[in-house]
Design a protein around this nucleic acid. Structure first.
Length: 271
DNA sequence: CTGCGGTCCTGAAGGC
DNA sequence: TGCCTTCAGGACCGCA
């Protein structure tokens, strides 16, 4: 499912393809997934693509932005020409040069929103926490949010109001790399564990970007050209239930449910 | 305020 | 073969 590394990969791969293109029109096949006034974007040019957490921000040359959240099964695909809508194509953004951007989403959880700059600053991102790959995400910040919460560390990592961009896959991978049990209360982490956690949040997310994101077994994520990411080949615990831990501790990977989400960890290496 | 569980949605997979 | 159940899960909503 698209988390920060997947959204960032899409941003990096899409920017050269669509920057400078003029929008000629939109096809909206699933109304519930489109929010805002599409007239605001017709005739405007793509100025830039940015990202906030898991949300892509396609900035236009006026004061408007196209926000995209892919949720679990969303895909953003670029087609140079002659694109025919597929079964799960929900929205198409057409460019005057004949190319298209396709928003495809099997489960219909994702959305596209048209918002102006003011709305972005005042409401849209107001409740999002710090960017984990920015200078704002310091050890001090992490320690502060952890010490304030008695919630399980995994829930804190998934809380977009604290840190923006971590989803279920990267939360599992981060906690394994930090040697911390997913259900350990945030405020019970030792100073050493907090330092380790800070370090691996950054390194695991960066690694996800290097590998072009993760196209997990059940996931819908692909890059804008339709190709898979390869981070799933480097999963240490996610979807590895019953397999031996890579640390050769002799233990097998355990799967539990936390908040209805699959949670994978090594009961020997994660304390 | 917190925390918990239901909801949305579809297709794949498993059970009988 | 075919039908039914379960599972995947981010964000939001309502309730205790």
């Amino acid at each position: 499912m698209p988390e920060l590394p997947e959204a960032e990969t899409i941003r990096l791969k899409l920017i050269d393809k669509i920057k400078g293109l003029t929008i000629s029109g939109l096809n909206i096949f699933e109304k519930k997934q489109f929010i805002g006034n599409f007239n605001r974007v017709i005739g405007s040019k793509i100025a830039d693509i940015q990202r906030r957490g898991k949300i892509l921000i396609i900035k236009l040359d006026n004061t408007f932005n196209i926000l995209v959240h892919l949720k679990m099964s969303g895909r953003l695909l670029f087609h140079a020409k002659l694109f025919k809508p597929l079964k799960h194509t929900r929205i198409i953004i057409n460019f005057v040069n004949g190319s298209f951007l396709e928003f495809n989403d099997v489960r219909k959880f994702g959305w596209i929103k048209i918002v102006d700059d003011q709305t972005i600053n005042d409401t849209e991102f107001k409740r999002l926490g710090v960017e984990p790959l920015s200078g704002e995400f310091t050890k001090k910040y992490l320690k502060t949010i952890l010490l304030k919460s008695s919630k399980a560390i995994k829930f804190i990592l998934l809380d977009q109001e604290k840190i923006a961009g971590i989803g279920n896959i990267y939360a599992c991978e981060v906690l394994f790399s930090a040697g911390i049990r997913p259900n350990k209360p945030g405020r019970n982490l030792s100073d050493r564990e907090m330092n380790s956690l800070h370090k691996v949040i950054v390194s695991v997310l960066k690694k996800g970007i290097v590998y072009g994101g993760s196209s997990a077994k059940d996931g819908g994520y692909v890059q804008p050209d339709g190709r898979y990411g390869s981070y799933q080949e480097h999963f240490l615990v996610y979807q590895r239930e019953g397999e031996f831990c890579i640390n050769n501790c002799g233990e097998r990977i355990t799967k539990i449910k936390m908040g209805g989400r699959g949670t994978f960890y090594c009961s020997s290496c994660q304390k």
